[in-house]
Design a binder for these strands. Structure first.
Lengths: 128, 128, 128, 128
DNA sequence: GTGGTCTAGACCACA
DNA sequence: GTGGTCTAGACCACT
C-alpha cells in the first residue's frame, strides 16, 4: 500500500492487486469527481511508470482500458488525453455507480439481509 | 455459468472467479441465510467434486478456507461439518455485511456521489 | 474439543487431531501422575468406544500403542491392564519429560532465544 | 533427512512432517534469528522447487502460509518478499516462543512434574 | 519472468 | 469411508 503523486494526480497502489486495474479505477474516479480537467493530457507512459515505480507496460495497459471505455484517447505522437465529452464522463459515472449499487444489493440479499436493514445501516454510516 | 445441485445445496459456478472462492462465498451465504442446518455434515470432498464436476483438491481448498474462518470443522475420518455455533455464524455474517457496506460507500464517495443520492437510489431500487 | 469421562478417567478430545494419539498421551500422563492405580484394568474397548463416542478400532489402536511401550498389557479373555511395574512408569515418565525438555530447547534455540531468557520466562510463568 | 541450500537459506527436510510445514517453520525461524534480511526477495516458486527437488505447488503453499501470517508479501510479477516490518517479525517471534513455553509447561505439568524440577533440568541442560 | 489456479491421479493416516 | 499431502503438468493473469 503506497501513495504516489504524478502531476496533480495521486495514486494509492497495493502491489497485491492488479496495478493496471487500480490505475484505471482511480483515474476513472478522479475524472468522475471532476478533479482533473477534461481534455487534459495524461502524463506520458514513461513519466507515469517512473514516478509510480512500475513497469511501463502496466501503464500502457491502464491507458488502453481507459481508451476502450472512451474516457481517454490516444493521439499519435502527442500522448494520451482525457476525453472532452462531459456526456461520456456522466455516462461512465452512472454506470460505475449502478454497478456499485447492484453489487451492494446482491451482497446484502445473498446474506439474507432485508432492504430496511440495509437502508438503516446506510443511514447510520459515516460518509466522510 | 452453470447451476449444479449437491444435496440440498445449489451452486452457480462460472469461470470468471476462482472456483474455490465461489464455493466459499456461496456456502458462507447459505449458512448466513439459514438455508443449511448448523452442525450438518457437508458432502464429502469426493462427492462434492464428482457432482460439481471439479477436481477434489479444489473442494479441499474451499473447505480449508471455511475451516480457517471457523464456519466449518473437520472431524477425522468422518467428514467436514458446518459449525454449530450460531454466534460464529452471526459474526461472519456481520463481517461480510460490514465489508459490503464499506465497499459500497467507498465506491460511491470515490465517484463524488453524495450520501443523500446514494440513499435515494437504494430506496428506489428493487430488492427482489 | 470435548470432555468425556470413562470410569475414573477423564478425557479431552479434539476431533481435529488423531484421537488414538490423544488417548495414548492422556493415559500415559494419568499413569505418570499416579492418578490411576498400577495393575488396574482399563475399560474394555467396547465401553471406552461407547462412552467416548468414538470408533472401537481407535481404542484398539490406542491400547496397542500403550502395550508396545510396556505401559499396558493385554490378557486374553480378561482385557487390558496397566502395568504393575513402577520402574516402567518411571522410565516412560523420564522419557516423556526428556522429550518435552529437548523440544522446548530446540524451539527456543531455533528462534535465536538465549538460555538465560528462556529461564527467565520459565521462572516468571504461572505453573498452575 | 536431507539438507539443501537455496541461496543463503539452508533447509533440512524429512518425510515425517508435511514439507510445506517444515518450510514455513524453517523460514519463520531464519527470519526470527535475523539470518535473512528484511525486505529481501525470496527465491521464486520455481527456483525453490527445483533446488529443493519438490513440487512448485508445495512451495506455493508454504509461501501462502507465510503471507497469511504477515511474514511475507507477494508482489505481482515480481515475486515473494520477506516483510520489511521489524515489528511484525518480533510479533511472530514472541508468539512462537510463547507457544513453545506454554506447550513445555503443559507437558511437564501433565506429567506431574514440579516447576522447581523443570527449572533445574533447564538449568542443567546444554543449550548449544 | 512472476505467482495463481486447476486437473488428474497417487499414496497415506485416520476412523 | 474420510480428509491430507504431494506430484506432474497445464493454462492464465500480471509485470
Amino acid at each position: 500500500m503506497e501513495t504516489r503523486t504524478v502531476g496533480h494526480m495521486q495514486f494509492v497502489l497495493d502491489l497485491s492487486l492488479p496495478i493496471y486495474e487500480q490505475m484505471v479505477n482511480q483515474i476513472q474516479r478522479m475524472i468522475a469527481r471532476g478533479e482533473v480537467e477534461l481534455g487534459m493530457k495524461l502524463p506520458s507512459v514513461r513519466d507515469m511508470a517512473v514516478q509510480l515505480k512500475i513497469n511501463p507496460s502496466t501503464v500502457v495497459r491502464a491507458y488502453q482500458e481507459l481508451e476502450r471505455e472512451g474516457l481517454c484517447e490516444k493521439r499519435r505522437g502527442q500522448g494520451t488525453f482525457i476525453t472532452s465529452s462531459q456526456a461520456k464522463v456522466e455516462e461512465v459515472k452512472k454506470q460505475l455507480a449502478a454497478e456499485a449499487l447492484h453489487s451492494f444489493i446482491e451482497n446484502m440479499r445473498s446474506l439474507g439481509i432485508t432492504k430496511e436493514l440495509a437502508q438503516k445501516w446506510l443511514e447510520e454510516a459515516e460518509w466522510e
